[in-house]
């Protein structure tokens, strides 16, 4: 499996207290554990099972994911922040890996 690559898209400009859209995605096959490979062997389940976003260390949103979530899991949400700070994104893999990304938010 290629190394999962996380991506996050924020608007160019963010104002204090004004809602903005956060688009997130990570490249990952999300193996359901229900599929067989070309030799007929069951491909073991391996998914991103949890996605957590925090702002200045406080939970913003967490998502528990099941195999019914598409490959390259995409999650979009709306948030508003009172001040500048750091957005921290973490994706937890079944194999124990954690993929993370950090974004600075500077409010206008």
């Amino acid at each position: 499996m290629a190394e999962p690559r996380p991506r996050v898209k924020l608007p160019r400009s963010i104002e204090a207290g004004v809602p903005f859209t956060v688009k997130t995605r990570i490249t990952h096959p999300m193996h359901t554990g229900e599929r067989h490979d070309s030799e007929g062997a069951l491909v073991p389940r391996q998914i991103i099972n949890r996605f957590v976003v925090s702002y200045n260390g406080e939970l913003a949103i967490s998502v528990d994911l099941e195999p019914a979530v598409s490959a390259d899991p995409y999650v979009q949400f709306e948030m508003a922040v009172p001040e500048s700070g750091h957005l921290e994104f973490q994706w937890f893999d079944d194999d124990g890996s954690v993929y993370s990304l950090s974004k600075r938010v500077d409010v206008d």
Binding site: I61, D64, Y74
Partner: peptide, 18 residues
């Protein structure tokens, strides 16, 4: 999926599913 919302986030989310 289960979404849990903290105070910075509107109780709204979009996801792509199988």
């Amino acid at each position: 999926a289960v979404f849990s919302f903290g105070r910075f986030v509107r109780p709204e989310a979009t996801i792509r599913i199988r």
